[in-house]
């Protein structure tokens, strides 16, 4: 239809598949989000640990540079503990970056946009998936993608007689699986918590506060309950504690406080509660029951 023709013309072209429709949601959100300079600076700041670790890995294998900088050759190994440390650090970087994403559903609630989404050919689950992906992708970039990148770079730059070549299949191959699992647990848990906080209020500021209060509050409740009742299992109430302990299990480090079952139980319960709240809130908003 040409723009100079002002009579109504219907569009009769081909339509794209259902999967590509809701992918427009994260794309348009990022276009708006990364227009803001503060968000870009914060995102770069959250990538700082990755850059530092990258420099460390390079330095560790470069003996000439080590000698030039007069640093001793006995630097800590790049092993499972190293990668767990990276992901623990990125968990807190993700927490900080999460605050830029706490309004993804709040904005839709404030401006009744959920009704618009639901009047388009997407289901409630697809709306949920679109919003989830919007939050999950940057968080998984900060965790899974960066951790895997460090891992691949380490394989690439490890010198020939290094353990990474000698004992790769025995000591290092399994780390990749743990990186993806732990990074995934961090990203999914934070994404669901952000979306839940976002759907519980119609005020952008409150959504951030709710998110923070949920993380800190549940941790306080978990610690107090487990101390009063002398049962460490109650620590699983805190999603943060449960996620950190899953990380410890993933990388076979023995300083965990929760049993594997309790840690997974806590995380799965958190996911289930968040999904339940989200589905109810989205359904209510679609019915104009704010």
């Amino acid at each position: 239809m040409p723009v100079y023709d002002y009579t109504y013309q219907t569009w009769k072209g081909e339509r794209r598949g259902a999967f590509l429709r809701w992918l427009a949601m994260p794309r348009f959100t990022y276009m708006d989000l990364f227009k803001k300079r503060q968000v870009i600076i914060l995102f770069m700041f959250c990538c700082l640990q990755f850059l530092l670790r990258l420099a460390y890995q390079y330095l560790r294998v470069n003996e000439e540079l080590l000698a030039l900088l007069k640093i001793g050759a006995n630097l800590p190994d790049v092993d499972a503990k190293y990668f767990r440390g990276f992901l623990d650090g990125q968990l807190f970087a993700s927490l900080v970056f999460s605050f830029t994403l706490t309004a993804v559903i709040t904005d839709d609630l404030i401006h009744h946009a959920i009704v618009l989404y639901m009047s388009k050919p997407i289901s409630r689950w697809e709306y949920f998936a679109g919003k989830f992906l919007t939050v999950f992708l940057p968080l998984s970039f900060l965790t899974i993608i960066q951790a895997v990148a460090l891992y691949v770079i380490q394989i690439a730059i490890a010198p020939e007689p290094d353990n990474w070549h000698l004992y790769f299949w025995k000591d290092y191959a399994w780390i990749l699986k743990s990186l993806i699992l732990y990074g995934g647990v961090i990203s999914v848990t934070l994404s669901l918590l952000i979306l839940t906080a976002s759907c519980l209020t119609k005020n952008r500021r409150y959504s951030g506060i709710i998110f923070l209060v949920t993380i800190i509050g549940l941790d306080l409740i978990a610690n107090t309950t487990s101390e009063i009742l002398l049962n460490k299992g109650y620590l699983a109430i805190s999603p943060l504690r449960a996620v950190l302990d899953i990380g410890k299990y993933c990388f076979h480090t023995a300083d965990y406080r929760l049993s594997l079952l309790d840690a997974w139980g806590g995380v799965l319960l958190c996911w289930e509660i968040c999904t339940f709240i989200l589905y109810r809130r989205i359904s209510r908003a679609a019915r104009y029951e704010h």
Partner: peptide, 24 residues
């Protein structure tokens, strides 16, 4: 009721809605 996505221009808002309907 008033329903829109804040921070967008009408043309971007419509483009988004079009893509949600399956338009390339």
């Amino acid at each position: 009721h008033e329903s829109y996505l804040p921070g967008m221009t009408p043309v971007r808002f419509l483009r988004f809605m079009g893509e949600m309907c399956g338009l390339p």
